Simulated assay, not measured.
Amino acid sequence: MTAITDLTVKAADGTPADLSTYAGKVLLVVNTASKCGFTPQYEGLEALHRDYAGKGFEVLGFPCNQFGAQEPGDAAEIANFCALTYDVTFPVFAKVDVNGANADPLFVELKKQAPGFLGTEGIKWNFTKFLVGKDGQVVERYAPTTKPEDIRKDIEKLL
């Protein structure tokens, strides 16, 4: 399987961002949205980031507008919302599709490595989370309802 850290995504400004920058780290990759019932999870994601960033952990946020049009803003609006509302310091990349023909290759690989309930690959909603080990392989997939703090023990095991 392809290591997640072998892929390239788009930074918030649209330029290529090589995920090899995060090689050897534990990652939590999340499709996010600013106007979702789960949006307050930004606070928990930021807490994880602040608690473990110095220990080889990163949260990577990928805004997505595929579910109820809950991420309508452009990159500047998303960055402003994240910074002002939740003091987000973890990387938030360019808006992506996570399902369908235009799904970002990162999410194609994440879903392949960690299918959802009953083996379906499709992401059902915003704030689906993928925990990636130091080897770049997906360890676990979490539903949007899983709170970031409930993932702490799994992160600590990998660190």
Rank of each mutant, 00 (worst) to 15 (best):
M1A: 15
T5E: 08
V9P: 08
V9S: 07
V9N: 07
K10P: 10
A12M: 15
G14P: 14
P16L: 04
A17P: 10
L19N: 07
S20F: 12
G24E: 09
G24P: 10
K25C: 00
V26M: 03
L28M: 02
S34Y: 02
F38W: 12
T39L: 10
Q41N: 08
E43D: 10
L48G: 06
L48F: 05
H49K: 09
R50P: 07
R50Y: 11
D51T: 08
A53I: 10
A53S: 14
G54H: 11
G56S: 11
V59W: 07
V59T: 08
L60M: 01
C64G: 03
G68S: 03
Q70T: 10
P72M: 00
G73S: 00
A76T: 09
A79H: 14
A79P: 13
N80H: 15
F81N: 01
C82Q: 04
A83W: 11
T85H: 05
Y86H: 14
Y86N: 04
Y86F: 14
D87Q: 14
D87P: 03
D87E: 14
F90N: 01
V92G: 06
V92P: 05
V92H: 13
K95M: 15
K95I: 15
V96F: 10
V98P: 09
P105L: 09
L110K: 04
K111I: 10
P115D: 00
G116L: 00
T120S: 14
E121K: 15
E121P: 11
G122T: 04
N126E: 01
N126M: 04
N126D: 12
K129G: 05
G133R: 02
G133Q: 02
D135A: 13
Q137D: 06
V138F: 00
V138P: 02
V139T: 08
E140T: 10
R141W: 01
P144L: 07
P144W: 06
T145V: 09
T146W: 10
K147H: 05
E149P: 06
I155C: 04
I155Y: 10
